[in-house]
Simulated scan of single mutants.
Amino acid sequence: MDTQAVRVEGLHKTYGDRTVVDGVSFDIARGETLALLGPNGAGKSTTVEILAGFRRRTGGTVEVLGADPETADTALRGRVGVVAQSTGRTGPLTVRELIRQFAGLFPHPRDADELIAAVGLAPHARRRMAKLSGGLQRRVDVALGIVGQPELLFLDEPTTGFDPHARREFWDLIRCLKDCGTTILLTTHQLDEAAQLADRVAVIAAGRLRAIGPVSGFGGPEAHLPIVRWHEGGRTREERTRHPFALADSVAQRLGGSPDEIEIVRPRLEDIYLDLVGDAAGEAADDIAASPVVTETEGAVR
């Protein structure tokens, strides 16, 4: 059996002259959880939709459980679960009726009532979908995505609308799925969620993959260097160093005493992520500034 559940090489997606996904490449091993992070509009959801077979790619190669999702038959669908960013399911069916209906589409589904309890919907099982709040509808989305016990699960910002308690319960459910061997691709804005659930983290911004690696040590050794931050001359200064205490002492000696505010910061996943996204935003601004502008009236480059 192939050890890789997902292979992506040079993935591109464009709409006219707008590039949404720009040469993205990564693998996901069987049984692994990969968290895909990035700001709104970064290309995360488009990437997931291409992998799930919902959207055609412009270029590159994609393999999901050994098949191209763009041309695969229905057998692949039965092995893959998808929790899209928003489905907006409403209608006359109750929660239990809808989940049982979906369960009937799969050869070896989870028990509907056990699943309803697992996603915290037991008190609402007899309520009609149209009467549920957005947060409760989101829990139904999650239930429908995993009812078929998929080998591979795509979770696109699954805990949107969850309260803190529900989010923790959902994390426990995802850990159980992982323990059973499910491969998971998770997109999220919650960095603590990525740190809790993922084996590896990837950051995508402006359509490009900026970094990928294990949660522990993500971004490489340089990204984890301590930061000494202090106030001097009316502004905040900071410096990365392997010897933060020595630097703090040298600053104090140079200023003739310890500054009013000096701190040593150990970078977290959030800090590294924000640095990567900030660099991508700077690159995009540079690209825009360097691009020639054509006016419709003049038809000339200026």
Rank of each mutant, 00 (worst) to 15 (best):
R18V: 15
T19R: 11
V20C: 13
A35S: 13
L37R: 06
G38T: 05
G41Q: 10
E49R: 13
L51V: 07
L51K: 06
F54Y: 14
F54W: 07
R57W: 00
T58K: 08
T58V: 09
G59H: 03
T61G: 05
D68A: 08
T71F: 01
A72H: 02
A72R: 01
L76C: 07
G78W: 02
R79S: 09
G81I: 04
A84S: 12
T87E: 11
G88A: 09
G104C: 05
L105Y: 14
F106R: 05
F106A: 09
P107I: 02
P109G: 05
E114H: 08
A117H: 06
A118S: 12
L121W: 00
A122Q: 13
P123M: 01
R127E: 04
R128L: 00
A130F: 00
K131N: 11
L132S: 02
G135T: 06
G135K: 04
L136C: 01
V140M: 04
L144I: 14
Q149D: 15
L152N: 06
F154R: 03
F154C: 03
T159G: 01
D163S: 08
P164R: 05
H165P: 00
R167Y: 13
W171C: 09
L173V: 12
R175N: 10
C176G: 14
L177S: 03
L177P: 07
K178L: 02
C180G: 12
G181M: 05
I184G: 00
L197S: 06
D199R: 04
V201M: 08
V203F: 05
I204L: 07
A205F: 00
R208W: 12
R210D: 07
I212N: 10
V215I: 14
S216H: 10
G219P: 07
H224Q: 15
R229D: 05
E238W: 13
E239I: 13
E239H: 15
P244V: 04
F245C: 04
L247K: 12
A248C: 09
D249E: 15
A252S: 15
A252W: 11
R254P: 01
R254F: 05
G256Q: 07
G257V: 02
S258P: 10
P259Y: 01
E261I: 09
I264C: 06
V265H: 14
R268T: 15
D275Q: 14
D286S: 14
S291K: 11
